[in-house]
Design a protein around this nucleic acid. Structure first.
Lengths: 120, 120
DNA sequence: GCAACCTTGACACGCTAGTGGTAAGGTTCG
DNA sequence: CGAACCTTACCACTAGCGTGTCAAGGTTGC
Protein backbone atom coordinates (compact mmCIF):
# COMPACT_ATOMS: atom_id res chain seq x y z
CA UNK A 1 0.00 0.00 0.00
CA UNK A 2 1.81 3.07 -1.26
CA UNK A 3 0.33 5.73 1.01
CA UNK A 4 1.45 7.70 4.05
CA UNK A 5 -0.46 8.48 7.22
CA UNK A 6 -0.81 12.02 8.38
CA UNK A 7 2.32 12.23 10.50
CA UNK A 8 4.47 10.69 7.80
CA UNK A 9 2.99 13.01 5.22
CA UNK A 10 3.66 15.96 7.48
CA UNK A 11 7.26 14.84 7.87
CA UNK A 12 7.97 14.71 4.16
CA UNK A 13 6.09 17.82 3.11
CA UNK A 14 7.06 20.30 5.81
CA UNK A 15 3.49 20.96 6.91
CA UNK A 16 2.33 20.14 10.42
CA UNK A 17 -0.31 17.42 10.87
CA UNK A 18 -2.56 20.16 12.19
CA UNK A 19 -2.19 22.11 8.95
CA UNK A 20 -2.83 19.06 6.80
CA UNK A 21 -6.23 18.76 8.47
CA UNK A 22 -6.79 22.48 8.00
CA UNK A 23 -5.90 22.28 4.30
CA UNK A 24 -8.33 19.41 3.94
CA UNK A 25 -11.04 21.45 5.63
CA UNK A 26 -10.40 24.26 3.16
CA UNK A 27 -11.09 21.78 0.36
CA UNK A 28 -7.60 22.12 -1.14
CA UNK A 29 -6.24 18.60 -0.60
CA UNK A 30 -8.61 15.87 0.55
CA UNK A 31 -6.86 12.51 0.97
CA UNK A 32 -8.74 9.24 0.83
CA UNK A 33 -9.41 7.34 4.04
CA UNK A 34 -8.60 3.87 5.26
CA UNK A 35 -11.36 1.60 6.52
CA UNK A 36 -10.74 2.86 10.03
CA UNK A 37 -10.93 6.49 8.86
CA UNK A 38 -7.18 7.19 8.76
CA UNK A 39 -6.10 9.77 6.17
CA UNK A 40 -3.96 8.21 3.42
CA UNK A 41 -1.77 10.50 1.34
CA UNK A 42 -0.69 9.19 -2.05
CA UNK A 43 2.24 10.36 -4.15
CA UNK A 44 0.12 12.92 -6.00
CA UNK A 45 -1.14 14.47 -2.82
CA UNK A 46 2.35 14.70 -1.36
CA UNK A 47 3.58 16.40 -4.49
CA UNK A 48 0.76 18.90 -4.43
CA UNK A 49 1.36 19.63 -0.77
CA UNK A 50 4.92 20.58 -1.59
CA UNK A 51 4.01 22.71 -4.59
CA UNK A 52 1.34 24.40 -2.48
CA UNK A 53 4.03 25.65 -0.09
CA UNK A 54 6.01 26.93 -3.05
CA UNK A 55 2.96 28.64 -4.49
CA UNK A 56 2.19 30.49 -1.28
CA UNK A 57 5.79 31.53 -0.66
CA UNK A 58 6.57 32.59 -4.20
CA UNK A 59 3.62 34.95 -4.55
CA UNK A 60 3.05 35.83 -0.93
CA UNK A 61 -0.54 34.66 -1.06
CA UNK A 62 -2.67 32.93 1.57
CA UNK A 63 -4.34 29.56 1.77
CA UNK A 64 -7.70 31.29 1.71
CA UNK A 65 -6.73 32.95 -1.58
CA UNK A 66 -6.17 29.57 -3.20
CA UNK A 67 -9.40 28.42 -1.62
CA UNK A 68 -11.22 31.32 -3.21
CA UNK A 69 -9.65 30.63 -6.58
CA UNK A 70 -10.83 27.04 -6.28
CA UNK A 71 -14.32 28.20 -5.42
CA UNK A 72 -14.36 30.47 -8.47
CA UNK A 73 -13.24 27.59 -10.63
CA UNK A 74 -16.09 25.41 -9.33
CA UNK A 75 -18.80 28.04 -9.37
CA UNK A 76 -19.14 29.40 -12.88
CA UNK A 77 -21.69 31.95 -11.82
CA UNK A 78 -19.31 33.38 -9.25
CA UNK A 79 -16.44 33.45 -11.71
CA UNK A 80 -18.59 35.19 -14.28
CA UNK A 81 -19.83 37.78 -11.78
CA UNK A 82 -16.39 38.63 -10.44
CA UNK A 83 -14.89 38.61 -13.90
CA UNK A 84 -17.38 41.01 -15.39
CA UNK A 85 -17.15 43.33 -12.41
CA UNK A 86 -13.38 43.47 -12.74
CA UNK A 87 -13.60 44.01 -16.46
CA UNK A 88 -15.86 47.02 -15.95
CA UNK A 89 -13.55 48.33 -13.24
CA UNK A 90 -10.47 47.89 -15.40
CA UNK A 91 -12.11 49.58 -18.38
CA UNK A 92 -11.59 52.88 -16.60
CA UNK A 93 -7.85 53.58 -16.73
CA UNK A 94 -8.37 57.36 -16.45
CA UNK A 95 -4.71 57.92 -15.63
CA UNK A 96 -4.60 55.78 -12.50
CA UNK A 97 -0.93 55.72 -11.50
CA UNK A 98 -1.22 52.13 -10.26
CA UNK A 99 1.75 52.85 -8.05
CA UNK A 100 -0.29 53.27 -4.90
CA UNK A 101 -2.03 49.94 -4.49
CA UNK A 102 0.94 48.35 -6.21
CA UNK A 103 3.13 49.53 -3.37
CA UNK A 104 0.54 48.23 -0.95
CA UNK A 105 0.54 44.76 -2.42
CA UNK A 106 4.30 44.87 -2.59
CA UNK A 107 4.46 45.66 1.12
CA UNK A 108 2.29 42.71 2.00
CA UNK A 109 4.38 40.49 -0.25
CA UNK A 110 7.70 41.68 1.15
CA UNK A 111 6.53 41.32 4.70
CA UNK A 112 5.58 37.71 4.09
CA UNK A 113 8.87 37.06 2.32
CA UNK A 114 10.86 38.52 5.20
CA UNK A 115 9.06 36.33 7.67
CA UNK A 116 9.82 33.29 5.57
CA UNK A 117 13.48 34.33 5.34
CA UNK A 118 13.81 34.71 9.09
CA UNK A 119 12.15 31.38 9.64
CA UNK A 120 14.83 29.75 7.50
CA UNK B 1 -18.36 68.92 -13.45
CA UNK B 2 -20.30 65.67 -13.08
CA UNK B 3 -18.46 64.13 -10.13
CA UNK B 4 -19.14 63.62 -6.44
CA UNK B 5 -16.82 64.11 -3.50
CA UNK B 6 -16.25 61.29 -1.05
CA UNK B 7 -19.07 62.11 1.35
CA UNK B 8 -21.59 62.53 -1.44
CA UNK B 9 -20.42 59.29 -3.04
CA UNK B 10 -20.76 57.54 0.31
CA UNK B 11 -24.28 58.88 0.64
CA UNK B 12 -25.48 57.52 -2.69
CA UNK B 13 -23.69 54.18 -2.59
CA UNK B 14 -24.26 53.06 0.97
CA UNK B 15 -20.57 52.75 1.78
CA UNK B 16 -18.96 54.85 4.47
CA UNK B 17 -16.31 57.39 3.46
CA UNK B 18 -13.86 55.34 5.45
CA UNK B 19 -14.66 52.27 3.36
CA UNK B 20 -14.33 54.17 0.09
CA UNK B 21 -10.75 55.00 1.07
CA UNK B 22 -10.19 51.37 2.06
CA UNK B 23 -11.58 50.10 -1.24
CA UNK B 24 -9.25 52.47 -3.05
CA UNK B 25 -6.30 51.18 -1.03
CA UNK B 26 -7.22 47.65 -2.06
CA UNK B 27 -6.96 48.79 -5.69
CA UNK B 28 -10.59 48.02 -6.46
CA UNK B 29 -11.94 51.48 -7.22
CA UNK B 30 -9.48 54.35 -7.58
CA UNK B 31 -11.23 57.67 -8.34
CA UNK B 32 -9.43 60.51 -10.04
CA UNK B 33 -8.37 63.50 -7.98
CA UNK B 34 -9.06 67.21 -8.15
CA UNK B 35 -6.16 69.66 -8.29
CA UNK B 36 -6.28 69.91 -4.51
CA UNK B 37 -6.22 66.14 -4.13
CA UNK B 38 -9.93 65.61 -3.45
CA UNK B 39 -11.33 62.27 -4.64
CA UNK B 40 -13.82 62.69 -7.49
CA UNK B 41 -16.26 59.84 -8.15
CA UNK B 42 -17.80 59.72 -11.62
CA UNK B 43 -20.97 57.91 -12.68
CA UNK B 44 -19.06 54.76 -13.59
CA UNK B 45 -17.36 54.56 -10.23
CA UNK B 46 -20.64 55.08 -8.40
CA UNK B 47 -22.22 52.28 -10.39
CA UNK B 48 -19.37 49.90 -9.67
CA UNK B 49 -19.49 50.76 -5.99
CA UNK B 50 -23.12 49.69 -5.92
CA UNK B 51 -22.55 46.49 -7.88
CA UNK B 52 -19.60 45.71 -5.63
CA UNK B 53 -21.93 45.61 -2.64
CA UNK B 54 -24.25 43.30 -4.53
CA UNK B 55 -21.38 41.07 -5.55
CA UNK B 56 -20.13 40.63 -1.99
CA UNK B 57 -23.60 40.06 -0.56
CA UNK B 58 -24.78 37.68 -3.26
CA UNK B 59 -21.87 35.27 -2.99
CA UNK B 60 -20.84 35.90 0.58
CA UNK B 61 -17.30 36.82 -0.45
CA UNK B 62 -14.91 39.39 1.00
CA UNK B 63 -13.30 42.52 -0.40
CA UNK B 64 -9.93 40.80 -0.17
CA UNK B 65 -11.26 38.01 -2.36
CA UNK B 66 -12.11 40.44 -5.12
CA UNK B 67 -8.72 42.06 -4.55
CA UNK B 68 -7.05 38.71 -5.06
CA UNK B 69 -9.07 38.04 -8.21
CA UNK B 70 -7.93 41.41 -9.52
CA UNK B 71 -4.34 40.62 -8.71
CA UNK B 72 -4.61 37.30 -10.57
CA UNK B 73 -6.05 39.09 -13.55
CA UNK B 74 -3.14 41.55 -13.60
CA UNK B 75 -0.39 39.05 -12.89
CA UNK B 76 -0.45 36.38 -15.56
CA UNK B 77 2.29 34.40 -13.89
CA UNK B 78 0.28 34.20 -10.68
CA UNK B 79 -2.87 33.21 -12.53
CA UNK B 80 -1.01 30.51 -14.42
CA UNK B 81 0.60 29.15 -11.27
CA UNK B 82 -2.63 29.01 -9.28
CA UNK B 83 -4.56 27.66 -12.25
CA UNK B 84 -2.20 24.81 -12.94
CA UNK B 85 -2.00 23.88 -9.27
CA UNK B 86 -5.78 23.72 -9.05
CA UNK B 87 -6.00 21.71 -12.24
CA UNK B 88 -3.61 19.12 -10.84
CA UNK B 89 -5.52 19.05 -7.58
CA UNK B 90 -8.84 18.62 -9.34
CA UNK B 91 -7.50 15.86 -11.56
CA UNK B 92 -7.66 13.56 -8.55
CA UNK B 93 -11.35 12.89 -7.91
CA UNK B 94 -10.58 9.56 -6.19
CA UNK B 95 -14.05 9.38 -4.75
CA UNK B 96 -13.90 12.61 -2.76
CA UNK B 97 -17.42 13.12 -1.40
CA UNK B 98 -17.14 16.90 -1.79
CA UNK B 99 -19.77 17.18 0.88
CA UNK B 100 -17.37 18.05 3.68
CA UNK B 101 -15.69 21.23 2.52
CA UNK B 102 -18.87 22.05 0.66
CA UNK B 103 -20.68 22.18 3.96
CA UNK B 104 -17.86 24.32 5.32
CA UNK B 105 -18.16 26.87 2.55
CA UNK B 106 -21.89 26.77 2.93
CA UNK B 107 -21.56 27.59 6.60
CA UNK B 108 -19.38 30.59 5.91
CA UNK B 109 -21.76 31.75 3.26
CA UNK B 110 -24.85 31.32 5.39
CA UNK B 111 -23.24 33.05 8.34
CA UNK B 112 -22.48 36.08 6.20
CA UNK B 113 -25.95 36.04 4.74
CA UNK B 114 -27.54 35.92 8.17
CA UNK B 115 -25.51 38.88 9.32
CA UNK B 116 -26.60 40.81 6.28
CA UNK B 117 -30.22 39.87 6.93
CA UNK B 118 -30.11 41.02 10.52
CA UNK B 119 -28.47 44.27 9.51
CA UNK B 120 -31.39 44.99 7.19
C1' DG C 1 -12.64 84.78 7.35
C1' DC C 2 -15.10 81.14 8.81
C1' DA C 3 -17.98 77.00 8.29
C1' DA C 4 -17.94 72.96 6.05
C1' DC C 5 -15.76 70.34 3.41
C1' DC C 6 -11.40 67.50 2.09
C1' DT C 7 -6.65 65.14 3.09
C1' DT C 8 -3.45 61.62 5.61
C1' DG C 9 -2.27 59.21 9.74
C1' DA C 10 -3.06 56.97 14.02
C1' DC C 11 -5.47 54.24 17.77
C1' DA C 12 -8.97 50.82 18.66
C1' DC C 13 -12.12 47.13 18.30
C1' DG C 14 -14.41 42.64 16.71
C1' DC C 15 -13.99 38.87 13.59
C1' DT C 16 -11.64 35.41 10.90
C1' DA C 17 -7.44 32.86 9.15
C1' DG C 18 -3.72 30.32 10.50
C1' DT C 19 -1.49 27.77 13.89
C1' DG C 20 -0.43 25.17 18.20
C1' DG C 21 -1.99 22.41 21.99
C1' DT C 22 -4.66 18.97 24.65
C1' DA C 23 -8.22 15.70 25.89
C1' DA C 24 -11.13 11.55 25.06
C1' DG C 25 -11.46 7.77 22.48
C1' DG C 26 -10.63 4.15 18.45
C1' DT C 27 -6.76 1.26 15.61
C1' DT C 28 -2.50 -1.26 14.64
C1' DC C 29 1.09 -4.15 15.57
C1' DG C 30 4.85 -6.53 17.93
C1' DC D 1 -2.03 -6.10 26.18
C1' DG D 2 0.50 -1.97 25.74
C1' DA D 3 2.89 1.54 23.00
C1' DA D 4 2.34 4.34 19.34
C1' DC D 5 -0.31 5.64 16.16
C1' DC D 6 -4.91 7.69 14.35
C1' DT D 7 -9.64 10.33 14.90
C1' DT D 8 -12.67 14.51 16.23
C1' DA D 9 -13.58 18.39 19.16
C1' DC D 10 -12.42 21.88 21.80
C1' DC D 11 -9.43 26.26 23.87
C1' DA D 12 -6.05 29.78 22.89
C1' DC D 13 -3.00 32.69 20.62
C1' DT D 14 -1.15 36.07 16.76
C1' DA D 15 -1.85 38.75 12.78
C1' DG D 16 -4.54 40.81 9.41
C1' DC D 17 -9.22 42.47 7.47
C1' DG D 18 -13.06 45.45 7.91
C1' DT D 19 -14.69 49.28 10.29
C1' DG D 20 -15.24 53.57 13.30
C1' DT D 21 -13.33 57.64 15.21
C1' DC D 22 -10.37 61.31 16.11
C1' DA D 23 -6.52 64.78 15.34
C1' DA D 24 -3.89 68.07 12.58
C1' DG D 25 -3.88 70.45 8.66
C1' DG D 26 -5.23 72.12 3.66
C1' DT D 27 -9.41 73.83 0.34
C1' DT D 28 -13.72 75.89 -1.03
C1' DG D 29 -17.37 79.04 -1.21
C1' DC D 30 -20.34 82.53 0.55
Amino acid sequence: MEALTINEAAETTGWSPRMLRYIERAGLIVPRRSDAGYRLYGAGELQRLRTLRELLARFGIALSDVGFARRMREDGELEEAVGSWLKAAAARPEEVPASDWLRWEQDKHNKLLNELMEAA
